[in-house]
Amino acid sequence: MALAGALLTGALAGCGDGPVRMGAAAVVGDDRISTAKLDQAVLDCQRQFKNDQVANQVRAALESQRQQQPMSGEPADCSPRSALDTMVNFEVAEAAAKTAGVSVTEGQVDQMIGLMGRQAPAESIVVALGMPKEYTRDVARMNAAQSLILQKLGADGNQQSPASLQARQQALSLFRQAAGKLDIRINPRFGSFDENRMTVSPVTTRLSATESGVR
């Protein structure tokens, strides 16, 4: 029991210092993502994924791609960490867009949903990526913000062109700066925010020499 207590005790891991507020899964700037909101999103995603054959097919394809290309990213699932990662990045994308001087209109959100749904329903893609379908517009808005930022930074539509590669590097730097200014704090129950990778990293448990009894 003493060991379990040590594992569960510690300062907040994240970009900022100090604990998150009671009942919060994360605090991003002035916004609070409650554990209740996160739990509901996870439950809804799991239920919808179970009943959505297309979402199952999309996730299987993504997992196959990830296995073939290990650097293609984290596996998609309806887990609390995956959902929280997306919710945090909604806020980061909004902040980065403001810094870049771009704004996303509802029409551009509609266009992005259309692009997302070219091969499968956009809502099914969102569920496959680990969020319930109710967040489809939020995901589209985040993607639209990223696209507008890249365009403003000089991306020319060819992902491998020097201009697009440079724009991606500049955009990543912009997103990292936005995340740093937001002072993101993650409840250690869900992991910690990795500002370099722009993702919520898994929970890690590490005992100090004193806590583990090793001098």
Score class of each variant (00 low, 15 high):
Glu134His: 12
Glu91Met: 12
Gln119Ala: 12
Leu3Asn: 08
Asp138His: 15
Lys181Ile: 00
Gly10His: 07
Leu150Cys: 09
Ala2Ile: 06
Pro75Gln: 09
Met116Ala: 04
Ala96Asn: 01
Asp31Tyr: 01
Val109Ser: 02
Gln108Arg: 14
Gln169Glu: 11
Thr204Val: 14
Thr136Leu: 06
Phe49Ile: 05
Gln57Arg: 13
Gly114Arg: 00
Ala179Arg: 00
Gly101Phe: 10
Asp31Met: 01
Ala2Asp: 15
Glu91Asn: 06
Gln69Trp: 04
Ser212Trp: 05
Pro80Arg: 06
Val54Glu: 05
Gln159Phe: 14
Met142Val: 02
Gly107Pro: 01
Glu63Val: 01
Ala155Cys: 09
Ala4Val: 02
Val92Ile: 15
Val42Ala: 03
Arg189Asp: 12
Arg81Asp: 10
Leu3Trp: 08
Leu38Pro: 06
Pro75Ile: 11
Asp194Gln: 11
Arg59Gln: 13
Val203Glu: 07
Glu74Asp: 08
Met142Pro: 04
Ser212Asn: 05
Val102Leu: 02
Asn196Val: 11
Ala100Val: 02
Thr199Ile: 14
Leu172Trp: 03
Pro80Tyr: 02
Ser72Asn: 05
Ala25Gly: 07
Val58Ser: 00
Ser82His: 04
Gly14Asp: 13
Ser82Pro: 00
Arg185Leu: 04
Arg21Gly: 13
Glu74Thr: 09
Asn89Trp: 04
Ser64His: 14
Phe193Ile: 03
Asp110Lys: 14
Phe193Ala: 00
Ala95His: 05
Ala36Arg: 03
Ala167Trp: 07
Ser164Asn: 08
Met87Asp: 06
Val109Asn: 04
Gly101Val: 03
Val28Ala: 04
Gln111Phe: 03
Met116His: 07
Ala4Met: 07
Thr205Lys: 13
Val109Met: 01
Gly5Trp: 09
Met22Asp: 12
Met198Gly: 00
Gln146Leu: 11
Lys50Pro: 02
Ser64Phe: 03
Glu211Thr: 07
Arg197Trp: 02
Thr35Lys: 13
Ala120Ile: 00
Gly213Ser: 01
